[in-house]
Computed example of a mutant assay.
Amino acid sequence: MARPTSLLLLLCVIVAAAAQLLAPAGAAKFACNARGGAARCQSLLGYTPRNATTLASVMSLFQVRSFRSLLAANGLPLSTPPSRPVPARATVRVRFACACSAGHGASMHRPFYKVAPGETLDGIARGVFAGFVTYQEIAAANNISDPALVQAGQELHIPLPCSCDEVEGAAVVHYAHLVAAGSSTSGIAAEFGTAEETLMSLNGIRDPKSLQAGQVLDVPLRACSSSISNASIDRGLHVPNGSYILTANNCVLCSCSSSTWQLECHPTKGLSSSACPAATCGDLALGNSSSSTDCESKTCVYAGYTTTTASFNILTNLTTQSLCDAAGAPMPQPSAGFDLQSGVQWAYLAVLSICFNVALVGFVL
Rank of each mutant, 00 (worst) to 15 (best):
A336Y: 05
N33H: 13
K114C: 12
S229D: 14
C100S: 08
C254N: 04
R50L: 13
T80P: 04
V173C: 02
S107I: 01
P161H: 07
L360E: 12
A18H: 13
M108T: 12
E155M: 07
T268R: 03
V13Y: 10
C265A: 11
C254Y: 04
G127S: 09
T309V: 10
S289K: 05
G343N: 12
A347W: 12
S273W: 08
A285M: 10
F363L: 14
H266Y: 11
M200N: 06
V86N: 01
L121P: 01
I233K: 10
H238K: 11
A72G: 06
F312Q: 07
P330W: 07
L160P: 00
S184M: 09
L71I: 05
L202T: 04
A23N: 07
V351F: 13
S292C: 09
D122N: 14
L7F: 13
R93M: 06
S107A: 14
A195S: 12
R93A: 11
L45T: 05
H177T: 01
V128F: 15
K114I: 08
P82I: 01
E137S: 15
G204N: 06
T120K: 03
A23Q: 11
G153N: 07
A88I: 03
N33V: 10
L121Q: 02
E296V: 08
S290I: 06
W346H: 08
L9P: 06
L202D: 05
A140T: 12
A130W: 05
L44R: 02
L237Q: 04
G343W: 04
L55R: 00
T280F: 11
S274G: 09
A17G: 15
A231Q: 14
S289I: 07
A34V: 00
R84T: 15
A72T: 03
I188K: 00
R35E: 03
V115D: 09
A52W: 02
A72N: 04
H157E: 07
L340A: 12
L71R: 02
D122A: 15
T309I: 09
S297Q: 13
L360W: 15
A213C: 08
F132K: 00
F129R: 01
T306L: 10
S255W: 12
Y47H: 10
G182P: 03
T308W: 14
H104T: 12
H238E: 12
Y113C: 00
Q20K: 06
L45G: 09
C224E: 01
T268M: 04
V115C: 09
E196F: 08
R40W: 11
L284W: 09
R89D: 15
C162K: 05
L349K: 06
T307E: 14
G105R: 01
P77N: 03
T80H: 07
T309E: 14
T308Y: 14
E197M: 05
S186M: 03
Q42T: 13
G282C: 11
V344T: 11
D294R: 05
